[in-house]
Amino acid sequence: MSVKMNRKIKRALAFGAVAGAALGVLITFAAASKAVDKKAEAFAKTEKTLKKEKKALEEQVEKQKSIEAAATLSTKGTDDWELLLVNDNYPLDQKYEPELEEIAEGRSVDARIAEDTKKMLSDAKEAGLKMYVLSAYRNYEDQKTVFNETMGDWINQGSTYLDAYEETKKSVAIPGYSEHATGLAMDIVSEDYQDLDDKQADTKESKWLAENCYKYGFILRYPSDKSDITGIVYEPWHYRYVGKEAAKEIMEKNITLEEYLGVA
């Protein structure tokens, strides 16, 4: 073999060794990068899980605070019974049962507001209006039925169970979180138009209620521009008794019960 050929072979072998070493480095780097990526992915998942658990814990703490606050408010004193707050953050004890009095056939309210309620309905009738109390007191089981039926309607329209639940929450309180269980709330509509939609606000009956309800101790509980506070969409048919003094201030200031109580 010639010296020249010998040199070529040596250069080739040297190049191969360098290339092999470089390839080894690349493979090692790739493996290391993959391992780092896996660790990063695992860390991200762990971090996401921890954040989720932290959020759930914080929500649980806030819920407990709300429950305690609701309990405090409801037992604050007999003079404050009409200001009992019930919403997504302030649940009502399932055992709560007000003393009831019928104000229309098959419709009852807390006996303490019966006189004012009858007077409001009577005055509306004298004004030539046709009020219809679609719903008044509802106990826990009744509320569960209404919630499930409404959720079923959404599912029948093609919504998933989760979406149906979320949509139902916007217009129907979860059992245990409904004002109807207090005996202080009523759904009042026009006898000639009983659909629960925004058009209800255009009826003579709704317009009269919106203007005069405070005189009898009632407020429009879920105004059109306050759903971010109340958690419930606009309901021009849902009226809540809070007492004449509070009702006057709430309606004049265009605020909600939450805002009036300072818990918004």
Rank of each mutant, 00 (worst) to 15 (best):
L134R: 06
A114E: 00
K204G: 02
T145Y: 10
T117C: 05
M120R: 09
S224L: 05
E149T: 12
A181R: 15
Y177A: 02
K54M: 11
Y165F: 07
A71H: 15
E167R: 07
Y214F: 06
A71W: 14
Y132K: 08
E191P: 03
K4W: 07
G262N: 04
F15I: 12
D198Y: 09
L57H: 07
V36G: 03
A114P: 02
E41F: 05
D93L: 08
S2C: 08
P175G: 06
L92R: 09
L257C: 11
E211L: 06
S190V: 04
F218I: 11
T78S: 12
E59Q: 10
A114M: 00
A19M: 13
R221I: 04
D37V: 09
S190F: 03
D116I: 07
L257H: 11
E58S: 10
R240C: 09
K248R: 13
K170T: 05
K244N: 05
C213S: 14
T28S: 08
F218K: 04
A124L: 07
K95Q: 15
I219G: 01
A114D: 00
G16A: 10
N156L: 09
S135C: 09
K119G: 06
R11F: 03
S66E: 14
E58V: 10
Q143F: 05
T256L: 06
V263P: 02
S33V: 12
V189T: 01
L50N: 06
K45M: 12
V36S: 10
H238G: 07
K52H: 13
K130W: 01
N6K: 11
L162D: 06
K169A: 01
G262V: 02
D197W: 02
D93T: 12
K51P: 07
K10H: 12
E68C: 06
D123E: 12
R11D: 09
I229V: 11
T72A: 15
G176Y: 00
P223D: 03
G20W: 00
G77H: 10
V3F: 03
L50W: 02
E97L: 13
T75E: 13
L129V: 04
K119V: 04
P175M: 03
E179L: 10
D163A: 08
Y260I: 03
A69T: 10
K39R: 10
E245L: 02
W154A: 02
L84R: 15
E166R: 05
L57M: 05
A42S: 05
A21T: 15
A42G: 14
S190Y: 01
G183K: 00
K119W: 03
T256G: 07
P223G: 05
I103G: 01
A70W: 00
R11V: 14
